[in-house]
Design a protein around this nucleic acid. Sequence first.
RNA 1: GGCGGCAUAGCCAAGUGGUAAGGCCGGGGUCUGCAAAACCCCUAUCCCCAGUUCGAGUCUGGGUGCCGCCUCCA
Length: 487
Amino acid sequence: MTLTIYNTLTRRKEPFESRKPGKVQMYCCGITVYDYCHLGHGRTCIVWDVVRRYLEWRGYEVQYVQNFTDIDDKILNRARAEGTSMEAVSERFIEAYFEDMERLNVRPADAYPRATSTLDGIKRLVYDLEQKGYAYPEQGDVYYSVRQFADYGKLSGRKLEDLQAGASGRVEVEDPDSQKKKDPFDFALWKAAKPGEPAWDSPWGPGRPGWHIECSAMVRERLGETIDFHMGGGDLIFPHHENEIAQSEAVTGKPLARYWLHNGMVKVGGEKMSKSLGNFVTIRDILAQYDPMAVRLFVLQAQYRKPLDFTPEALAAATNGWKTLKEGLLFGYYSIINNSWEDDSPNPNPAPNSLIQRFREAVDEDFNFAGGLAVLFEIAKKLQREANILVHQGESTTSVRQLRQQWQTLVELAGVLGFRAEPDEKVQESNGGLKDEEIEALIEKRAAARKEKNFAEGDRIRDELLSLGITLMDRPGGVTHWHGKNN
RNA sequence: GGCGGCAUAGCCAAGUGGUAAGGCCGGGGUCUGCAAAACCCCUAUCCCCAGUUCGAGUCUGGGUGCCGCCUCCA
């Protein structure tokens, strides 16, 4: 079976071949640390986290690097507004980033280079570009000359003639800085220091790096001239990734990345979630209301390249879906099942698992996690059913060995998708503070009342127990079973 | 204006030319004094039109609608 991946560069699905056998190098454009992450960032992080996990599960040794942009106007503005330093602001939000990601169960990257720690590499790259005639200094700034790079536009599928300066309405074409450029699409590699701004020494005078150059420098420094995957949000295709290609490939003459992968945007009310529109919801706000794994499920149920609408209804649906998966994942922890496993001889030669095959076939097709999830749900539903039958009726028609194998399969596949389920001990142990004997006594009292057709009293006792989290089940034959919230 | 993408049941959503995965919601049934829990079952011809084909959600052309990008963006 072959892993097939949609490559933005070629606009096609291509069979995946790593550069070095068994090894994959990935670089993901991270965040500018001037605020808390919103769900859009969350989606990006979750999607590439799972891609990484999947590749590892497929047997690759993955090297994963993600940057923090910690030199930027927006960070500076925030620092000014708060009367602190750029460094203080970025430190704060980097810390918040890690907290959010830990909760979402996003595995840490192997390295998190920052712009401030990559200045030597950045300056070297700017110098190399200047030497090769791709960059020109202007009043302490240094600009990249897009006309020098013949392939400019190959990633985003644009030609310079097609580009319309200022079409996004974000930049004043009459901006004084624009006047320094030879071409409106030239972009800054290095910006001369302005009074009161943090600055670093350079051959072009004190200043700070432009945005695009840090990623080129980080990839070169940490991973090499050509990597396997370069990832990021779809809004980075142009100009950010286009410019990275221009910078890196002008110097090395080699492809920066073999596969360019982009995830779709999160939308709110039909529009892209973004800081500038003010329609964003931070991850921590969402997690105050929803289970992190429900958020993960919400993200992974959509094809990663398509837009994903954020609505309370969708999150609620994901929350319910997660309950099912969680129950399946916790199947092996139910003592009634677990105990009987002890005697079961280990499966010496597990047969080729068709469930795993189906999962792999689905996900191999351009990371179709939604398709893979269908397999997880199939197993989880089965286990949920079996667990209920065991709890309610005491026996199952499925062999213990089979159940265990399915549970292990579910745990394995859920792990690939980054789902984490922990038994909720607090709920499990709470029988409303009552001892088993006390509960049994109440049930007997209720049985007596019911025998006398005093259903009002019987229902009162049932409601009382229910309010303590104990559910009663009247089985045929007048037998009443009970269980706490968590079985 | 340019480039690109998307349109599948009430909602979310998968789908590699051969008669539509999965999730959520909802409905029906079994059981029950009534419930609860549990179990079982049910819910689409794929935006419109025209082609290619023995056969199209799946390819081609046209249309309509929505979205993203065009130097802040995940």
